[in-house]
């Protein structure tokens, strides 16, 4: 599996904000760094096909050699994690995990139980997500994304709201699982420690090394 970005340009009112060409290999983490407002998050929105109004994009996005540029978000198979966990508040923890699982999946209960165990949350499936700690919620969000079997993982500063100690552990937790599944990862961050821990190439939104 690999994620390839070909001559992607994102313009706002005609002015180019983001210009990027690169290939992210399976298990590799590409870190995109830059100050807030430079277009890092917009880049991820372009990758998942949800550019806000006022932006336009050109170029191609290839996943495992298939062009996904024209596909709607739900068919791209790109997992995304935001700064906040965005667990659905009306569903239980297991309900959130089940939402990620494909509807045809067999053995749903076992897959969900396994995911909970992997996140260190055994037996917490029936819990209200609002009663979990920040770190626990972040892990549920990751497991939910992984259960949807994405072909690549996009991370929009997902560690920035955790305290320093939890952040290092969560980072390790995410990168390990991405590597174990051979997923290419694009990490957007303004924290150099995140990028260093990722161990992959570090670029700015215009493709220059940062």
């Amino acid at each position: 599996m690999s994620l390839q970005i070909e001559n992607l340009e994102i313009r706002r009112n005609g002015a180019v904000m983001v210009a990027l060409s690169c290939r992210v290999a399976p298990g590799e983490v590409l870190s995109i760094m830059g100050p807030s407002g430079c277009g890092k998050s917009t880049l991820l929105m372009a990758l998942i096909g949800a550019l806000p109004p006022g932006f336009s994009a050109s170029g191609r996005i290839l996943l495992d050699g298939h062009d996904i540029t024209g596909l709607p978000t739900h068919q791209r198979r790109l997992g995304i994690l935001f700064q906040d966990d965005i667990l659905f508040p009306h569903l239980s923890v297991a309900g959130n995990l089940g939402f990620g699982l494909a509807s045809g999946a067999r053995d749903r209960d076992r897959l969900i139980a396994d995911a909970l165990a992997e996140a260190g949350l055994e037996g917490m499936g029936r819990r209200d997500p609002a009663t979990l700690s920040g770190g626990e919620r972040a892990r549920v969000a990751l497991m939910r994304t992984l259960l949807s079997e994405p072909r690549a993982l996009l991370l929009d500063e997902p560690f920035s709201k955790l305290d320093t100690d939890r952040r290092a552990r969560m980072r390790e937790f995410v990168f390990q699982r991405a590597r174990a599944r051979d997923l290419p990862v694009v990490l957007v961050t303004h924290d150099r420690a995140d990028a260093q821990a990722a161990g992959g190439p570090v670029l700015g939104v215009t493709g220059t090394a940062a």
Binding site: I48, H74, F99
Partner: peptide
């Protein structure tokens, strides 16, 4: 409503 909830759901494979 937080638009990101919709994006999360779509990225998980949920059609509109």
């Amino acid at each position: 409503w937080d638009r990101r909830a919709g994006l999360s759901a779509a990225a998980l494979g949920a059609p509109p």
